[in-house]
Amino acid sequence: MKSYIVFIKGLWRENPVFRQILGMCPTLAVTGYLANGIAMGLAVVFVLVASSTVISVFRKLIPKQVRMPTFIVIIATFVVLVDYFLRANYPFLSKKLGPYVPLIVVNCIIMGRQEAFSSKNPVWLSFLDALGMGIGFTLALIILSTVREILGFGTLLGHPVLGQWFTPWVIMALPPGAFLSLGVILGVINTFQKKSTR
């Protein structure tokens, strides 16, 4: 039962984007297209799961004083792996995500999970926690980029969905659109959250 909760909490109740407001940089920067959002989400899932598992395995061997640099080196290794992988196999995606793939290193969701969870918990639980958080992050990016791609381009995954009459809202494709839609989504979520707890 406990492992189930560890996995499920990242999806919604402790969703890294909507509830913890972490990882804002990629959330705001790459959500113009749904494809970019999914790719960024999956890259983060991979880095998060891999580094959480590795760190949890070696958690008793890593001295407290140097845990931060050790974590960073491990995370950075996986990030660079992802970057090379994308550049070699999906050059188009890699170009679109630009500097935001290397920037996963400084994504606070990843460092946060190591500090808060995987450096203190057994491997299986750390794996589930990372998976849950990663999927929660991906979910948030999917929601945000769906809204932005439909309104900003009138397409979804590149296919026109709104027809000819629609004039794309250019602002949604621009950085202000990311702030606006994230703010509105957070507001809506908070309103409903308050109502359900009341």
Binding site: L61, V66, T70
Partner: peptide, 8 residues
């Protein structure tokens, strides 16, 4: 400490 960092 040094050993850990070196190995990693």
């Amino acid at each position: 400490m040094i050993l850990t960092l070196l190995i990693v």
